[in-house]
Each structure stands twice: as C-alpha cells, then as structure tokens.
Amino acid sequence: MSKILVIAEHDGSSLNPSTAKTVACAASIEAAEIHVVVLAAAAAAVAGEAAQLDSVAKVLTVEGPENEHALAAVLAPQIVALSAGYSHVFGPSTTFGKDLMPRVAALLGVNQISDIMLVLTSHSFKRPVYAGNAILTVEAPADKVVVATVRIASYAAVADGNNAAIESATVDAELPDHTRFVGVQSGATDRPDLQTAAKVVSGGRALGSAESFDIIYALADKLGAGVGASRAAVDAGYVPNEMQVGQTGKIIAPDLYLAIGISGAIQHLTGIKDAGTIVAINKDEEAPIFEVADIGLVADLFKAIPELTEALD
C-alpha cells in the first residue's frame, strides 16, 4: 500500500487549485492513503478547503511565522521531517512545487521525478521531455521514497465533498535564516486564473503593443476567459511574465484555447497540447499553429478579433 503526502500550495488564505490536481494524481495510485500537509503562518482556512477534497484521508497543519511565505529553503527541512513513513511525497509542477520538491528530494538523498503525466504503477510513471516531443517512462527504486511533481495540466481536480480530519503536526527541524522574502508584485486581475480557466485567449507578437492587447482582453471578457501570451509578447513587454504559456511558462489544459497572432513554435505548443479545442487566428496560412488547431481562420487579427467579440453578443 502507498502512503502519499501531498504538499498543499496556497497563498496564506486559500488553497491553490493545483493541490486538488496533485491529489487526483496521487489517487490514481492503487490503494493509496493520501494526506495533505498545509505549512502556513495560520493554516485553518486552507486546511478547511483541503479537508473537503475527495480521496484525502487526513490534513496535517504545520503553523509558524516562518511559514508565512513559501520559501523552499525553509519548507524543505520541515517536509523532510514529516516525510518519515510515507512512500511518496508529491507537489504540483507549478513554480511553487518546482522550486521546492527537488530541494526536498536532495535532502532525502533521492532523485526527483518532474511532471508526472500518467501513473502506471506506484513506482512507474510517464513524463514529457524535450518540450513534450518525447514521452519518457521512468521507474523509481522500490525501496526509496518517491519524490515528484505532478503535471497539473494532465489531471482534473478531485471533487470536493469530503470531510477529512485535520490534525496539527509539530516538526523538529532546523530552519535556515539565509533566505528572506521581500515582496511579490502581481498584476492581479479579476479574470479567471490562467492555469485553471476553462477558456483561455492568448495573444502573440503580432499584437505589436501593450495597448493592442486590449482587443484580446475584450474578447476574453466576452468569453469569460483567462488571458495568456506567447514568450515573444512577454519579452516585448506587452504583458507581464505570469501570462507566458509554453515549455518555460505555464502548461495549461483549458476546454477552449484561442491562439491569436501566434506562430505556433514548438515551445508554445508544449503549453497547450492538452487543450480541448484549439482555435488559431493568423494571417499566414502556413503558420505551424494550423497544424494543431482544431479550427483555423486565416485573417488579420485586428479585423477579425473585434468582429468576433461583436458577434458573440
């Protein structure tokens, strides 16, 4: 039997949806007992949400002022202390999990598996490599704890109707003071979160300026969609970095993805492989994005997008 510890991702007040997806991956391991741990300054609200997730047997909380911000160097030794008795320790393959889990693994003296996309057995998994151009099956040693991140775009969140027990845990670990949180700057919007939105509209270099992105936002708002971008659009400063979709940005799986003025470079396509329906609007009929699009329209976006936004009334 597998006993799996899932590290909750949160912002101090609510649970990030990546956690419910990580739990879904853990639940696909046969006969798994799943615990979620919330490390926070004050954990009650987040733990309450985690306790509702289906398949979760228990929620552990570790509270303390040092856990106010998710610093990998501070969290990792605590997770190592908690990991005794678990066969698996999982986190999401968000920037939170990618920063943290390799540090946990190295402290435990084991390797880490990045981006599990499919569970074959309790110790063998599939994961994408080479920007998703190859899928690698890996096998972890049976006698060691499996530390991994879960590719959240590959999993649908578990439902929440559960009422798992919440227990506070104390850990005995020496915490470093060599790493300090200074601040976070985010272009928070009311739009749906890119990583969990059912619909996403993305713009590319073709938009040409930050102002022109307004037509993308207008369309997104009409659809109730999140907004993303290609690396070229982020590099050019049209939009902030957290909107980048792709191999080195966010990997997403919305039901509907609209790629507007995006050529379809392999690094971008990696980020949208699991989208339900891909729509491409590009003025170049040879653009590689059309090779993967379910619905393609060859058009000038500056004409087509306002027209589309209008037509959706």
């Binding site: 190859a134 899928i135 099956t137 699009a293 619905i295």
Partner: peptide
C-alpha cells in the same frame, strides 16, 4: 543508481482540424 529510464515514445499527435 536512481530513477531508471525505461522507454521513450513519441507523443500522441493532435490532428489537423478544419479551416473556416
């Protein structure tokens, strides 16, 4: 010895859709 690479396979391809 650590995590073993068992096998590489190509990803499943998305099919080209329709043009409107």
């Amino acid at each position: 010895a650590g995590i073993k690479e068992v096998t590489y396979e190509p990803p499943s391809e998305r099919e080209r859709g329709v043009m409107v």
